[in-house]
């Protein structure tokens, strides 16, 4: 009798635990408007659909974007500070069968090959749900072009200096 009770309690515990685990799925796609071969300074956008595939609401949902550089010898996580202001999304509750759609814009700061992934957890969940990866490569682009800077940096002071000389001569 005691054994049967224990088995029943264990089954109930397992059932409820699986109900608590967030039955989330995260789908990640690149926006159609993204350039095929992006370069530094371009903007990219990714779209995620977070779905509650379970039968009970998911409370305290939080999803965030991560970026890592995957160039050989330069593997490292990227601080998104300069890349994007849209770093996370939250939802108080996601009902069963409902989805949370989010756009993740970012500006490309450095050249290299990168992998982006969106992860989601909930308050009651005990595991992490991650999206598929999206990879992209950013081409190098000179930030400041000397053929633009030099004429301005030299020309404007010369122009003002010339005006001063002209005024001095007229005085």
């Amino acid at each position: 009798m005691i054994l049967r009770t224990l088995i029943l309690a264990g089954a109930l515990f397992l059932t409820s635990a699986s109900a608590w685990a967030a039955p989330l799925s995260v789908d990640l796609t690149a926006a159609p408007s993204n350039p095929v071969s992006p370069q530094m300074g371009d903007n990219l956008s990714f779209h995620t659909v977070i779905r509650n595939d379970g039968s009970i609401p998911v409370d305290g949902l939080i999803a965030w974007i991560s970026l890592v550089q995957i160039d050989k010898g330069k593997e490292q996580p990227v601080d998104l500070e300069d890349w994007s202001a849209h770093k996370a999304v939250t939802a108080a509750s996601l009902a069963p069968g409902k989805t949370l759609e989010t756009d993740w814009p970012m500006r490309l700061i450095q050249s290299g090959t990168y992998r982006v992934v969106v992860s989601a957890v909930s308050r009651s969940g005990d595991n992490l749900t991650a999206s598929p990866f999206a990879d992209f490569t950013v081409r190098q682009k000179p930030v400041v072009e000397s053929q633009r800077v030099l004429p301005v940096a030299i020309g404007i002071p010369f122009l003002l200096g010339g005006m001063m000389l002209w005024r001095r001569r007229k005085a």
Binding site: K141, P142, V144, E145, R148, V149, V152, A153, G155, I156
Partner: peptide, 9 residues
């Protein structure tokens, strides 16, 4: 012009 020179790319 300075803005243009350094930021136009």
């Amino acid at each position: 012009p300075y803005f243009w020179a350094v930021g136009s790319t």
